[in-house]
């Protein structure tokens, strides 16, 4: 379905080159759900933008491929995924154009990417609005974004993501801007709709609790690199990368965001050499600052980018 292979993304900035993603490899099987989890600034949105074909100007992709339905959408411009992948953005307030009605905005995308006439599109959209439980679905077509609440807007964006019958939906922290109750409702809706249609889902979050509720598989991203990947159950029950272990150790309820580790994600313009986690790692070894740790396969698709994954963490790191 979707596979990202060795993707690197760089952006030139005033303070030098920002190495935002480095050799990121992950895949979403047909009908599968993959969660990408990591602290703010680790490159989650950039990954999605690369997949959606909306990287900012001045971005370089020195290495890697993104295969979507068998074609490399980076190498082959004609294969661009724009309009063929459903996108649920992070901020429902800023992602809709305030001067066009909800219907007009979604219908414009359908005009290019969905079969049928405008009337078919309208009927289908009204039906989708009903499926996402928007009140008064027919009238919602002609309303402006400011006439909806935040939760309703996110429902609208979910409907928009499904409007062109994509095989894959990608979501960028779709509940971050919402209150907790609304968050839960939106997640339930998203799960139900993607499962019912057999869609693949790539779900980005900084919240392990949200991730556990939605995704079968997980990739933990740290400073633009994949630290650990595997079945969500396996990673949660037996995290191997020191970073993942500390995250989960700090937050046994697994529903808190990833701020409990001392230090911060390095700036993309000043990535440390070797293992990018080494300045914060309690297990750090002399070689860690020199060698980029390779991805080591463990059991059943579980893999970790740390040769010292079997060592126990010192006690204070888990406190």
């Amino acid at each position: 379905m979707l596979s990202v292979e060795g993707l690197s993304v760089r952006i030139g900035t005033g303070r030098g080159q920002a190495r935002i993603l480095d050799e990121v490899t992950l895949s979403v099987p047909r009908g599968g759900t993959l969660g990408v989890v990591g602290e703010s600034g680790c490159g989650k949105s950039t990954l999605l933008r690369a997949i959606l074909g909306i990287l900012p100007r001045g971005t370089q992709v020195p290495a890697g491929a993104i295969l979507f339905e068998g074609r490399d959408i980076l190498a082959d411009r004609a294969a661009s995924a724009r309009g063929r992948i459903g996108f649920i953005p992070q901020d429902p307030y800023l992602s809709l154009n305030p001067v066009f009605t909800a219907g007009a905005q979604i219908l414009e995308a359908m005009r290019h990417h969905a079969p049928g006439t405008r009337r078919d599109h309208k009927a289908k959209l009204a039906e989708l609005f009903r499926a996402v439980q928007l009140p008064d679905p027919e009238a919602a077509l002609d309303k402006y974004p400011h006439e909806f609440s935040g939760g309703q807007r996110q429902r609208l964006l979910i409907a928009a993501a499904l409007a062109c019958d994509p095989a894959l939906v990608v979501a960028d922290e779709p509940t971050t801007a919402l209150d907790v109750t609304t968050q839960r409702e939106i997640l339930a809706l998203l799960r139900q709709l993607t499962a019912a249609r057999g869609l693949s889902l790539l779900f980005v979050t900084h919240d392990f609790g949200v991730l556990a509720a939605v995704c079968e598989r997980v990739a933990v991203l740290y400073a633009g690199r994949v630290a650990e990947t595997g079945l969500t159950r396996a990673v949660l029950d037996d995290p191997r990368h020191p970073y993942t272990r500390m995250l989960l150790g700090c937050h046994p309820d697994r529903a808190v965001d990833l701020t409990g580790i001392p230090g911060t994600v390095p700036a993309a313009t000043a990535q440390p050499a070797g293992c990018r986690f080494h300045p914060r790692c309690p297990l750090v070894q002399p070689g860690c600052a020199r060698e980029v740790p390779p991805m080591l396969p463990l059991a059943e698709g579980h893999a970790v980018a740390c040769p010292f994954h079997a060592l126990p963490l010192p006690e204070p790191a888990l406190a």
């Binding site: 724009r82 309009g83 066009f100 414009e108 290019h112």
Partner: peptide, 26 residues
């Protein structure tokens, strides 16, 4: 610079229409 332009690009709007109508009206 707005998020909704990025969103519209991802949704696959036509280039000309995006610039001449969607962006211009704002």
């Amino acid at each position: 610079q707005k998020d909704f332009v990025l969103y519209a690009q991802a949704a696959g709007y036509g280039r000309v229409r995006l610039a001449a109508i969607y962006v211009l009206r704002n």
